[in-house]
Design a protein around this nucleic acid. Sequence first.
RNA 1: CGGGGCGUGGCGCAGCCUGGUAGCGCACCUGUUUUGGGAGCAGGUGGUCGCCGGUUCAAAUCCGGCCGCCCCGACCA
Length: 492
Amino acid sequence: MAKEITPRATDYARWYTDVVLKSQLADYSPVKGCMVIRPNGYALWENIQKTLDGMFKETGHVNAYFPLFIPKSFLAKEAEHVEGFAKECAIVTHTRLKATGESGHMSVVPDPESALEEELVVRPTSETIIYSMFAKWVQSWRDLPILLNQWANIVRWEMRTRLFLRTTEFLWQEGHTAHATHEEAEEEVLRILEIYRRFAEDYLALPVLTGVKTEKEKFAGALRTYAIEALMQDGRALQAGTSHDLGQNFARAFDVRFQAASGGWEHVWNTSWGVSTRLIGAVVMAHGDDDGLILPPRIAPLQAVIVPIWRNDEQQRETVAAAREIEGRLRRAGVSVRVDDRDSVNPGFKYAEWELRGVPLRLELGPRDVASGSVMAVSRLDRSKTPLPWDGLGESVPALLEAIQGALFERARQRREETTRGVDSWEAFVAGVESGGFLLARHCGGTECEVQIQDETKATVRVIPPDRPDDPGPCVRCGAPAAGRVVFARAY
RNA sequence: CGGGGCGUGGCGCAGCCUGGUAGCGCACCUGUUUUGGGAGCAGGUGGUCGCCGGUUCAAAUCCGGCCGCCCCGACCA
């Protein structure tokens, strides 16, 4: 049929692209590297936003909005930050176009008269512009902490892009805070990391490892970067969220100072943290199958679809009426549900279409079910069927949805457990990288050695686990003494 | 930036080598029979063949130039 999806086993990358396009999460745009997030995809993002936004607000954060354009000079103020982002900034040089050419061959070019005195960078991230404002707003220790978040779009001119996982423009949230002490900032960074972990696991059903990034992998300008790392079905890791302890690096660059209770002037301690629309890609890759998306019920825009089935006009009236009645009950029970009563396609087509879109639960309602006062619930996970009596649907359906949520997480967790293992020799390491998954290996901590490993195997240190047990031994690559193990994998 | 592939109805492709009425599948429209796993039959709509130029009586096809996109690598959430 027209909706064929490349099987995962044939070509995982193509499978991913097929699923994203065919389930109508997104489409390619006329501009290279950019994508259109279609209603199916945007609804997912809205659910992600709603939940995370609530978690941020519960922990005292407030939303604000800073401009898209940043003075070019700002990017140069923090040494490591320039290094990290200079190569991928879009830059605005003119403020208007002018028409050229003759009729029939008209074109537009930047009007040389309108060249900007100071060119503007389209934000690749907002530390610089936000901390320039903090400098203005902070005077006293009483002004701290500042706990801000913004929902925004940003632009990073990457060389190679992939739907949701890496696009030129993407949507994200970026939290930015300022604190009086390093301890307080570090607490904040860990609080957010925990929010990310909880969100990934409890809502996206994505088991994640948390930990610290190495010097090589940390955010440009940070003292230290924490991250959550998820594992995709093909055995590659995906960084799903980061939380940075920025120390006083930006505070010094932008002169964000406050007068302490003791009277002296001190620089603030900043943190920044973010997750992006990449999370949608993570959900697709972690849970989907050869029939399409599988969405975790807690963030699925549509949790259940009711498919009435009929053979004649009378049955059609009967089953559709019953479907509407059930739809009403489920809505009152807080379930996101709709009836698919289209007469233009047959039930089999509807099954395939809703499976492609990842709706967790299908409720089939034919004459037999109407006669018995029940519906046939079919799980998107494994197509297992459960007949449910109409009485009690307000409880049985939410219970089934929760069961699917749990099973989805458990399945992903098992996949990770099965492909997470310790390796001690370089041979085992190389072979392990090839077969995918997380490798627990000793590493000396040297950046050069880490680069060497990446060059040779494409694997990188994903995280250094927190509170890792002492497990001294030789570095898996260079043999130098290592205190313990870190997590390696090939990553997206 | 390096390597590979591709631009032909909405989508996926054939035709190009060897120039001569633009074709197939899906989708779409109409009718009809269907409807518990992607329906059958009949009839239909829709294309300046990526763009510019050249050769020729004649170009989707041959030649030159340009543009764009996708995939693989280095950079990255």
